[in-house]
Every structure is written in C-alpha cells, then in structure tokens.
Amino acid sequence: MSAPVYNFAYLDEQTKRMIRRAILKAIAIPGYQVPFASREMPMPYGWGTGGVQVTASILGPDDTLKVIDQGSDDTTNAVSIRKFFVKTAGVETTTRTEDATVIQTRHRIPETALTENQVLVYQVPIPEPLRFLEPRETETRRMHALSEYGLMHVKLYEDIARHGHIATTYAYPVEVGGRYVMDPSPIPKFDNPKLSDSAALQLFGAGREKRIYAIPPYTKVKSLDFEDHPFEPYRHDAACELCGATHSYLDEVITDDKGGRMFVCSDTDFCEQRRAEGHAHVPDQNEAVHG
C-alpha cells in the first residue's frame, strides 16, 4: 500500500467521536453554538471546512450524498466536495434532491421539500449572529446566556429607520424554539420559512469559527421582525426563463456586456426536473424586453 490511504471519510476516529459528541449536544440544545476542536482540512477555510467535517462525521457507507453551492450541483465548490467524499468514503452521490440522504449545502435550501430520512448540512462562515454588533466572544456568550437579544432588534430597527424596511436580505437572524437567536448561514431570506417545522434534521458547521449548531426536525424557527414590519421573504418579480417557475428562488444572470440579463432558478436540480416534466418559460406580453 504505497498510495496514501485515508480512514473512512478522511477524519480519524477520535476526531469523529469529538464532532459526533458536539452534534448530539447541538441537537439537544436547538440553536446553541457548540464549540468543537475544528481540524485543518485539505481545503481552505471558506470552502466549507465546517460542513465537510460535519458531513464526514455523520456519513456512512450506505448514504447518498448531494452537495450544492448556491443551489447549484455543478459549481467548483460543490464538485470538489462531492469528489472529496467519493475519494475518501466511496459513497454514492446524486444531484437529485429526493435521492439524497445527506445534503451538504452552501447558502441555499433545496426547493424540493425535504423528508424525515434526510439530513441537511450547512456550511457556515460566521456562526455568531451578534458578532457584527458585539465583537467580544465573552460578551456575545453572556448575551445568549441571558437571552439578551435587544441589540439585534435595534439593528433591524435601524434598517427600518434608514431604508423604510428591514434591509437584511440574507443570513437573516432567526429565533429557534423560542430560545436562541441563530444565524441561519447566508441563505437568502426567501429560504427562512423552510427552516421552520422541517421534516429533516438540519446541522450547521463553521470550520474557521469552530462551532456546530442544529435545528431538530419539527422545531419552530421564527425570523425576527416587528408587529408593524412583519418578516417578508423576497424573490425577484419574474419567472425562471428556463422552466417558467414563479415560486422558486431566482438568480440574475448577466448574459452580455450590453445590459442583457435573465432570471433562472438558483436550484439547478429543481429547474432540470421541471424542464424534464415539460415546463417551459412562456414570455409575458407585459414583460420588459431585456437588452
């Protein structure tokens, strides 16, 4: 055996035990960030080292893995992580949401509703929702201990004072199970309602910041808001130009250097399946002509 070999799913067993213990605590205390001894991974911070460590610790030989980056199965980040687990764990992979048992995601929740047999693993850059308001870890930890979240509401209020509405569009803070305020990772706020009462277990891993947290299935997750400024998910007022979907999250894609652009589903698997079913874009008479 001259070629380098890895333990199953790359991490050594002691590391997996440590991460697994952190995951169990995270599930028992929904929304609380459990510190863990994050390892250096063979990819840079910011590429999903937290998500990769969580996935490596839960993955078994019978799992089918799907990896998405901003909804897409075929971007560099998603392809690299998928290849990493094919190489180190030999697991089957898929791009179809309903065929996956473990889905690692960067910044999206799939459009297809998840089931009880699935686990969604988020890659998290900055797990602490209060970090930009209070830089000291000792202070944010105490604020969580005392449920002292007034500062977060002040931040949302300042949004309203400046812009007339809550201008936070992604990483929109949520309250989990009526206790902890949590950063849902930089998912668009369009996805926030899907965090609540999900049939699937949701795990969050932040490698650089060394935190793991979780939302168990069927847990109430509330996006923070005010009575007179209720939370509203945002989506571009358009239909997908490939599949015609009017209820999916859309990416704006620049198509040339003359102002040409198109809106397409951010979830590539969802869009492909709709097109396979025969859905197509029907141009609207009133729609502005692009370019």
Partner: peptide, 19 residues
C-alpha cells in the same frame, strides 16, 4: 469495526436525539 460500526451506532443515536 471502528469506522463503520461506530458510525452506525452514532447515526442511530443522532436520529433518536433528533426525534
């Protein structure tokens, strides 16, 4: 088996803790 069996035991406990 340190890799496969402990994963199976953990995964069962993870499912139980989540539900």
């Amino acid at each position: 088996d340190p890799a496969y069996e402990s994963q199976a035991a953990f995964r069962a406990l993870m499912d139980c803790t989540a539900r």
